[in-house]
Structures are given as C-alpha cells and as structure tokens.
Amino acid sequence: MSSVKVLLGDDDAGQLGLLADLLARLRPHWSIVACARSADEVQHSLDQDRPTLAILDVRLGAVTALEIVRQQSRRVPTIFVTGDPIFAVDAFNSDAVDFVLKPVRAARLEQALAKAEASTAMPSVPAGRERTSALCLFRGQELVWAPLDEVVYFTADRKYTRVVMPGFEGLLRMGIGAVESSLDPQRFWRIHRGIIVNMRHMDSARRDDLGRLVVRLRDRAERLVVSRPNESRFTDGFF
C-alpha cells in the first residue's frame, strides 16, 4: 500500500466520486483509505485510518470540515474544497495546504496536490509497484467503497468504466485507459481494448469453435473474448 493515505470527504456522492476519479488519475500510486459522506465518517477515518492527507468539502451537514480539522490533536495536511469562496480565509487560518473552488478541475487539483507534496515531503512518484487498493464507484445513486481484489473485471462503457464484482456492478466515471494506469499489470490483464480482467478470478482460457481465445471465469457464466493482439499473454498450458 502507498505511504500516502488519503481521506476524501464530501456529503454529495457525485462530488465525492469526482474527487476519487481525479485522484486516481493524478496520483494512482496513492491510496484512498476512505470516502466519507458525513462529519462522523470523516472523524472516524481520522481516528482509525490516520490519513496522511485529507481532501474535504468545507460543508459536511451542520458541521464544517474546518471545525473538525481544528479539533484534531494530530495535524493532518488538508486541502479544502467548496463552492463558496467565503470560507477561503477561514481555511487558510486553519493552516490549509490549499483551498480549491468547485467545480474541481484536474489542473487545479494537481496544483493543490503538488503543494501537499512540497509542504509535507510526500512521495510524488511511485515506489516500486504501489497501486490503488480500493475503489469508490457508483451503484445507481449510491456511492460504494469496494476492495480492488474483489473486482472480477472492468469493461469500457462509453466514456466510463463498468466494474463487475460478485453480486453487483458499479460505474467509475473515468475511461478504461485511466483505470488501467492505476492497476498492477501483473494482477490485472488487458485482454481486449475494452476489457481488463483480475487474474485471481480467471479459471481457464481455450479456443472456441470460431478459433477465438476465450477466458472462463470462476463461478461466473460469462465468457470473455481475448483480442488477437493480447493473446501473447497466454501461453500453452498456463492454466
């Protein structure tokens, strides 16, 4: 797991998902330890997960993130996010790393993350093969926190990525190329332009009647076709 552990907090599921997507794209080697939607959840993560960086919406119901951060005995570098610039002065008085106005753009968040790295000596490049270990994804209107190991496969869904897991499916609001950049290529294989498979869920691979190489999954009925350019990853007798 990455040495940089990030707590995300926003009471709006859509905004929380956007932050998670942007962070996964900009810092794929950092770990998101929690996606909190209330002041209580933020406080719980600060106490239990001990994040090294927090990215928090200022308004969290009746309590502001500014109040929560001020009350911490342990200083947690924090980037505050809000649609109301009136909070900017208070944020910087709370020793904020940065203050980002909504709508959050990738370029602006990148500036804030770079400030965090510079001010807190966070590693700005991956160490070894550190990758994300969990995902914040949408299941209908609900935001779900899902361990990466439980993902069976990813499949492209227009400009988004569908995440298939045992028992349900969710949606990442980012393209499959961006998703691939945050995954360990030794564990997740791109078998098709629009499909990435978790190797731990593979059962076998064999030719069908049309000569196509087809992956069978453990405990699932669907079959996934391997594109010709990706067949070289599979060697005779591998399974």
Rank of each mutant, 00 (worst) to 15 (best):
L56N: 03
S73T: 09
R173P: 00
S181E: 15
T155G: 00
V214N: 01
V226W: 06
A96F: 01
T161K: 12
V4P: 01
Q48W: 09
W30L: 11
V197M: 12
V33K: 05
R190C: 05
E67C: 02
L46I: 04
V69L: 06
D84I: 00
G177D: 15
E130S: 12
K102V: 00
Q141W: 10
D95K: 13
H201N: 10
R220M: 12
D11H: 15
S94H: 10
I191P: 15
L213C: 04
S31N: 14
A146V: 15
R216G: 14
F168H: 10
V97E: 07
A107N: 09
R105V: 01
I55T: 03
A34K: 13
L16H: 07
I195D: 01
V89T: 10
L26P: 14
Q72P: 03
I32T: 08
M122N: 08
L7T: 03
T64P: 05
L210P: 04
A116L: 04
R190D: 06
L213Y: 05
A127M: 14
V76G: 05
D21Q: 11
H192W: 06
P123T: 10
E222S: 07
D157K: 10
I176M: 09
Y153T: 02
A134N: 11
V215K: 02
P77I: 01
L8F: 13
S227C: 05
L143W: 07
P229R: 07
C35K: 13
V4H: 05
M165Q: 09
G61L: 02
S94V: 11
V104L: 10
A62V: 10
I191K: 06
R75K: 11
T120K: 11
R223S: 11
Q186D: 15
D95Q: 14
I196E: 01
R228S: 05
V125P: 04
T155L: 06
A116P: 14
M1H: 14
I32L: 13
S3L: 14
T132V: 13
P28N: 11
D90M: 03
G167I: 12
V100D: 00
A118Q: 14
I32F: 09
P85I: 00
W189S: 04
R158L: 13
D208W: 02
D47H: 13
L172I: 08
D208A: 06
R59Y: 05
R193V: 08
D157H: 13
D95P: 01
H29P: 02
M199H: 10
L8C: 06
G170Y: 02
F234Q: 03
D21L: 08
